[in-house]
């Protein structure tokens, strides 16, 4: 499986995701945002960080960079795209994923391990997880408060496009288990074809029991399947 990680000025989780991908035996390449074409690839990862210092809106400037036209083209052809944290924000700015990420409700940058629940395990990203499995994954963001219009929210629910929801240890999704005010506790969503996943939590930080846990491993092994 070949993967490409797009690097923007201000990306800071690009090397973490590269380590995770390589550990999982992906043949990974780093792609600078000024490139206009991508080498053959099965998975494109837009990593976390603060591309362009979050100027204008998080992900807005990166969402208009040169490489993005190519990413959009490949996405439409069914290439797998994973956007993590700032990558999720960038995907919403490109229009590949609907909705947007607002400032956290409590106005604070939140960096902590939270529980999330797998809502759909019948996708290429999540097949190795159990349905409703509760994971502990790190979040680190200032704008993670997912928002979308009511029509799209209905579409997300009806078509099973919500990938992960914030929950408590037991899997209950409620206001207390919602760290950032995200609509319906949404932590990650798919596009309608389910070849694009955007998520605020960082699975690449959870691949080694020695430093955290290995709850993120199954996301990558699902992709390898």
């Amino acid at each position: 499986m070949r993967s490409s990680v797009i690097v923007f000025p201000g990306s800071n989780c690009d090397r973490d995701i590269a380590v995770a991908l390589e550990k999982m035996q992906f043949k990974n390449q780093m792609i600078w945002h000024k490139e206009t074409s991508l080498p053959k690839t099965d998975l494109i990862v837009i990593p976390g960080g603060f591309s362009y210092g979050d100027y204008l809106r998080s992900g807005a400037i990166a969402g208009k960079s040169l490489i993005i036209d190519e990413v959009i083209k490949l996405a439409k052809n069914g290439c797998l795209i994973l956007g993590i944290c700032n990558g999720f924000q960038i995907l919403t700015e490109t229009g590949l994923l609907k909705g947007t990420l607002l400032r956290n409700k409590n106005l604070k940058f939140i960096n902590k391990d939270v529980n999330i629940k797998v809502l759909n395990n019948k996708t290429q990203f999540t097949s190795k997880y159990k349905l409703n499995q509760v994971l502990k994954i790190n979040i680190a963001h200032n704008e993670g408060n997912y928002f979308t219009d009511s029509k799209h929210l209905q579409e997300l629910r009806n078509d099973n496009l919500i990938a992960f929801k914030y929950c408590d240890k037991k899997g209950n999704t409620n206001l207390d288990s919602n760290p950032n005010g995200a609509l319906d506790n949404i932590a990650g969503i798919f596009n309608s074809k389910k070849n694009i996943l955007g998520m605020m939590p960082h699975p690449e930080r959870m691949i080694d029991k020695l430093i955290s846990n290995d709850d993120g491993v199954n996301l990558f092994s699902s992709l390898l399947n």
Binding site: L56, A60, K64, K98, G99, T100, L102, F147
Partner: peptide, 9 residues
């Protein structure tokens, strides 16, 4: 419409 404004919000 192309950059300065996020028309969703």
């Amino acid at each position: 419409e192309k950059l300065l404004v996020n028309l969703i919000i």
